[in-house]
Amino acid sequence: MAKRIDVSGLSAYYGAHKAIDDISMTVEPRSVTAFIGPSGCGKSTFLRTLNRMHEVTPGGRVEGKVMLDDENLYGTNVDPVAVRRTVGMVFQRPNPFPTMSIFDNVAAGLRLNGNYKKSQLADIVERSLKGANLWNEVKDRLNKPGSGLSGGQQQRLCIARAIAVEPDVLLMDEPCSALDPISTLAIEDLIGELKERFTIVIVTHNMQQAARVSDRTAFFNLAAVGQPGKLIELDDTERIFSNPSVQATEDYISGRFG
């Protein structure tokens, strides 16, 4: 449950292109850490190194260390599949399995992980949907396809699917960028509740969102197009948005560039 992430000296590549350079940071358990920065600065790439999804991309390669409490995710004997079972992820566009019912979507991860009795599955699905604030909207149509829900509901379904397996960490890659403001608000409220139980890392393009939901904020930047992205600074969100210690952060926050 809710582990600390400790990254040191992490670089990621697409083929010969270095996308992020030498990033080190610590993410506290039971907190929300937001990644902000201009497009192409590598924040999504960095997020995807935290559950070993980056190396799924053809040519994707990672150097460095990611400690989850005292386990190195990039250790020699670590199975990436096992890593992804403990580090959940929610994507930019809601992606419920289109051929599965709402119930099966939430149960999908559990069925991968082992044998559950029917009653156990039903309990966990209900608990996860309640955890994602979706239960009341879908409890009468659990057997209907997940693709029939609205965009915001689909995204909460994806969150329910991710938390059903009780991950240690929940990664969110711009989870609201395809949603309307009402749905966005619902997800943001949800993030506030989920941080009681999970370590949450969220990438967002929306700085107000970062200010609203996160405890800590990391600002990424790149020197020029084609250059690798770097972590500029990581600090308490309040401080980043009021009195950042690096000039580039202040420029970005106040809209002077980016």
Partner: peptide, 27 residues
């Protein structure tokens, strides 16, 4: 098969065969 469907399965900790079973074959 849209990449996002395959990534959905991958992110849940699916092996390659499980990705195929959950995302590719149904699609």
């Amino acid at each position: 098969v849209p990449k996002m469907h395959e990534e959905a399965a991958l992110a849940l900790g699916a092996t390659r065969w499980e990705v195929i079973r959950m995302s590719v074959l149904p699609f």
